[in-house]
Amino acid sequence: MESVSFLRVIKTGALNFWRNSWLSAAATMVMTITLVIFGLLFLLFGITNYSINTIKNTVDISVYFKVGLDEQQIFKIRDAVQADPRVKEVVYISQQQAFDEFKQRHQNDPLIVQSLNELTENPLSATLNVKTYHLEDYPAVAQSLQDPQYKDFISKVNFEDNRAVIDRLSRILKFIVTFGVGLIAVFCLIAALVVFNTIRLTIYNRKEEVEIMRLVGATNWYIRGPFLTESFLYALGATVLSALLFTPIFNQVLPKIAVYVNPQLTLFHQNLFNYWYLMGILLGLSLLLAAVSTLWAIRKYLKV
């Protein structure tokens, strides 16, 4: 394809965009709304999903051993737990480690530091932190550790059950997905119809021109190109507008939500919600919408 023709196609498309600027603005707006809704649902999905995973990670079984046990005995129990096929990982924290961590955590509290220094014996017990592969296995695994054969060694089995919260979040997630897919489908359809009609009108307005072009030897793409260009301009416009809208959301809102969900990970949104990644998706979506509806209009109303 000659570059002169390519530039002419772009130019004609841009000209058509300006000629019916009101309709172009309307098409761009509808597309923008679609993109924004898509983006918001995308973020909502991401946040919920992330919350679930964060909470899932906090679920574990803590096994506290009695003080003064032989470490070999603890290892034996650890290996037994590890051998359970439902168990994903077992982390052993020795008495000394527990003590050091405790000291570390409270190093700014002079009262605690002082009382720790006065101790002659380590009062903390050694622990095992057990994680299973599946959430539903926790109660059974916790139960098995309360077996009488361990009662001489284990002082306490602690199991923090967050499954109810996770369940509720999972249901919310499911709702977001079903509701979101439906909502997006409806808005995509509306946007496609608006673009379709706008392009149809442009085709109608340029009927004469197109006919002459055809008869004096215009190639197919030279005739169709401007219509595609016009709708791609709607898509680009909509993506830029959405990008502007999402900038404050990414800069102000998301970090706050991130800290709320997981206070230890203040910058998670930078990995989980890459701004450019989302903008890329929005651009792709809008170009796809524009292309599909334009090709549909061309097929229907532009005889070549």
Binding site: E2, V4, E208, E211, M213, L215, V216, G217, A218
Partner: peptide
Amino acid sequence: MVFQDIKLLPKRTAFENVAFAMEVCGHKK
């Protein structure tokens, strides 16, 4: 081809009408 119904574009001048056919064929400005 000179069409029976002429088919000139009303919003273009004589020059532009002729140039139009050349543009379509990919000629340089």
